[in-house]
């Protein structure tokens, strides 16, 4: 199967610290895969390389056929890589609807002149963007907050809003950084269904970082395990469950499984 996203031999160094060490990794088209590992393993750093925030010390990232290594984040986003953040990073003092509309920026055309003149094209584009934003808000289940400032939303709904915003980019690959953090078991279970639905209905491939093992094991088709920047295992949930090195990484060293 073709890969939607492929990272080859990524290494990231911060001064002396090697946060990601020679990690290769891929997301198959239409797949749901997970990246797990103890705290500080380098998962978020890996995401930051994929999305262009960090320039890797070495390695290549491909999105489809396109090499996107170290290209500016907004270009990578436009090419179809969207993400959510471990610590929610919404535009707090913009409405939920506007948050989603910001992510449509690269798919919209109207510049200063068209906006000032309110040309038919601009008005149509705005109307479509509004409508699409409402759809997405409803889709993730926060439609009733459309006109509310993002930061006034309940925590769980802020996470949902982040997903809606990411989907507004019309991504090919969706990166979710600990999307169930702070959710209770029922919400997490519902989330598993939600991720599957998004994959089907939005035609995206999904890569998630997740600490909640029940979520990881239920939703992932493949799992990659990082520990101290190294890839220590890769395989199906069943293989990972019984992998000695994984068990050691989680229990033997830090014992943080299911942490936050």
């Amino acid at each position: 199967m073709a890969n939607a996203l492929q990272a080859d031999a990524i290494t990231v160094q911060f001064g002396g610290l090697v946060a990601v060490n020679d990690v290769s990794f891929s997301v198959p088209e239409g797949g749901i895969v997970s990246l797990i590992g103890p705290n500080g393993a380098g998962k978020t750093t890996f995401f930051n390389v994929l999305t262009g925030l960090y320039k890797p010390t070495s390695g290549v990232v491909r999105l489809g056929d396109e090499i996107i290594t170290a290209r500016p984040p907004h270009i990578i986003a436009k090419h179809g890589l969207a993400r959510t953040f471990q610590n929610i990073r919404l535009f707090g003092l913009m409405t939920a609807e506007e948050n989603v509309m910001v992510a449509m920026h690269s798919h919209m055309r109207s510049g200063i002149l068209r906006t000032l003149l309110k040309t038919p094209h601009q008005r149509r584009e705005e109307a479509q963007a509004h409508a699409r934003a409402r759809e997405l808000l409803d889709y993730v289940g926060v439609g009733r907050y459309a006109s509310e400032y993002a930061r006034n939303l309940p925590y769980g709904d802020q996470r949902r809003l982040e997903v809606a915003r990411a989907l507004a980019l019309q991504p090919k690959v969706l990166l979710l950084d600990e999307p169930t953090a702070g959710m209770n078991p029922q919400e997490s279970a519902a989330f598993v269904e939600f991720v599957r639905r998004v994959r089907e209905e939005m035609h995206v491939s999904i890569l998630l970082i997740e600490h909640d093992m029940s979520v990881v094991m239920r939703v992932s088709e493949r799992i990659t395990v990082l520990d101290q920047g190294q890839k220590i295992a890769e395989g199906t949930p069943d293989e990972i469950k019984s992998d000695a090195r994984v068990i050691e990484a989680y229990l033997g060293k830090s014992g943080v499984e299911g942490g936050r």
Partner: peptide
């Protein structure tokens, strides 16, 4: 406004 609110998030939203 997105830049004012969170520059990095804005850039990652395109």
């Amino acid at each position: 406004l997105a830049i004012r609110e969170d520059e990095l998030a804005a850039s990652m939203m395109g």
